[in-house]
Nucleic acid binder design. Structure first.
Length: 427
RNA sequence: GCGGGGAUAGCCCAGCCCGGUAAGGCGCUGGAUUGCUAAUCCAGUGUUCGCGAGAACUCAGGGGUUCAAAUCCCCUUCCCCGCGCCA
């Protein structure tokens, strides 16, 4: 969430940001409502503080009188009515604050100036391209057909057991999945990232600090009768793991490499991706996550996207980097790059990596701060990026590395992780 | 799941029995002193409100008793030890 001080000092900054994000004038009115409830709270707070001060003074007097052995019944009587007033006023003060904070949670992050203006994903801006798109002399197959044709997985069985959006993978594709994880892990660890296997479920309090409110409805699976949600990425666990902590500046940046399955409801997802493994309710992913000082978070953001690019370059899969525009940027991020891999069969670039700087938006919700040498205490910045989203990387490999006989070459860098296997054939 | 012990500031820890408004240490910051460093000494070091003087809050979270709660009572969460169950 945003700093309440910004609403007091510069509400127009927030309004301009909302406008860029495509909010209507009416929706932008929420900013004034926040300012108003903040004023109400502060006013009410001052009144109740004055009464509490009075109470503390009387308490002190009673203590003195009692020591002196004098009568205190008058004082105690006055205290009764005072306490009633305080209780009443305390409740309304609390409700003003709750209203303010509830509204505050609905207001998205301030965007970086380099985020391009645009109404939706069609106006995202490609920044650079890498790799050469191969020429194919034969008719390319979809990744689903390749998987089923080679008997390396099954979607009908998973449909029966679990519904659409799940998959069974067999043999070489399982090994490929594991190889991708290990490939990404080894690269990140050698760059100094700390390897983490996190909890796959989080309490609401922790989850709320990391995600948008809407995500609870559209993305997250809840465990029945428990205060637990399945993570949709290890970003969630890694970000929440330091909630309520005060870090030291010398320990920053903290660079983490998370490995976990990801669970997503994908409400609203429909159409071409219903079959196959491109968009699923469950997949494995290696994630980069950084806690940084505000001064360095933009450097870290660039570092993470570079790391992701390095992985795809080593996999020899053509891609482009896209700067996500104002109208398509999620509420938590201040700026986001996508890495879109070239899919020769679909003849288009598809998102396989997403890299966001959330600045202090998550840190403020989770209360993650750091001590500066001058004694000041500030919120950290959080930056996250996919390293490899395995199922999507597999799709990219199947599309790019397929051969005319229906088999698929294994990218060279993955072969050491697959007992030297060079070609995925029929099982 | 059962029994016992815990949760206090960035970290460690006292106070709880016996209610009177968070002590001390470490670390960090500033200052003094000193060829330099170290050591030593002094001061500061939770959150919020207030232009300010100042004030309120803060002892895992919530409720209660009381003029007054870190302290007494109840509920919840988490951690540790033992038992049980278990990949």
């Amino acid at each position: 969430m945003l700093d309440i001080r910004l609403f007091r000092e510069s509400p127009d900054t927030i309004k301009a940001n909302l406008k860029k994000r495509g909010w209507t004038e009416e929706e932008i009115g929420i900013v004034d409502t926040v300012v108003e409830s903040d004023l109400n709270w502060r006013k009410s707070r001052q009144e109740v503080d004055a009464l509490k001060h009075k109470r503390n003074v009387v308490t002190e007097e009673i203590s003195e009188l009692k020591k002196a052995g004098k009568d205190i019944s008058d004082k105690i009587k006055a205290m009764g009515t005072l306490n009633e007033e305080i209780k009443k006023l305390d409740e309304s003060t609390k409700s003003f604050l709750e209203k303010r904070d509830e509204l505050l949670l609905r207001i998205p992050n301030l965007m970086h100036e380099s985020v391009p203006m645009g109404k939706d994903e069609s106006e995202n801006v490609p920044l650079r391209y890498w790799g050469e798109q191969s020429e194919y002399e034969f008719e390319l197959k979809s990744h689903q057909d390749i998987i089923e044709g080679l008997n390396q997985g099954d979607f009908e069985l998973s449909g029966k057991t679990s519904g659409a959006g799940f998959y069974f993978l067999y043999e070489d594709l399982v090994m490929l999945d594991l190889a991708l994880s290990r490939f990404a892990i080894d690269n990140l660890r050698s760059s100094g990232f700390k390897l983490i296997e996190p909890p796959f479920m989080l309490r609401k309090k922790a989850m709320q600090g990391v995600v948008d409110l809407a995500d609870f409805e559209n993305m997250l699976y809840k465990i029945e009768n428990e205060d637990l949600y399945l993570i949709a990425t290890s970003e969630h666990s890694m970000c929440a793991m330091l909630m309520d902590k005060v870090l030291r500046e010398k320990d920053l940046p903290i660079r983490l490499c998370g490995v976990s399955p990801c669970f997503r409801k994908e409400v609203g997802a429909h159409g071409i991706d219903t079959k196959g493994i491109f968009r699923t309710h469950q997949f494995n992913k290696v994630e980069q996550f950084v806690f940084s000082t505000p001064d360095h978070s933009w450097d870290e953001h660039e570092l993470l996207i570079k790391n992701a690019e390095t992985l795809f370059q080593k996999l020899e899969i053509p891609y482009r980097i896209v700067n996500i525009c104002t109208g398509d940027l999620g509420g938590t991020a201040a700026k986001k790059y996508d890495l879109d891999a070239w899919m020769p069969r679909q003849k288009e670039f598809r998102e396989v990596v997403s890299c966001s700087n959330c600045t202090d938006y998550q840190a403020r919700k989770l209360n993650i701060r750091y001590d500066k040498p001058d004694g000041q205490r500030e919120y950290v910045h959080t930056i996250n990026s996919t390293a490899i989203a395995n199922s999507r990387a597999i799709v990219a490999i199947l599309e790019n590395y397929q051969q005319d006989d229906g088999t698929v070459m294994v990218p060279k860098v993955l072969r050491p992780y697959m007992d030297g296997l060079e070609v995925i054939g029929k099982r």
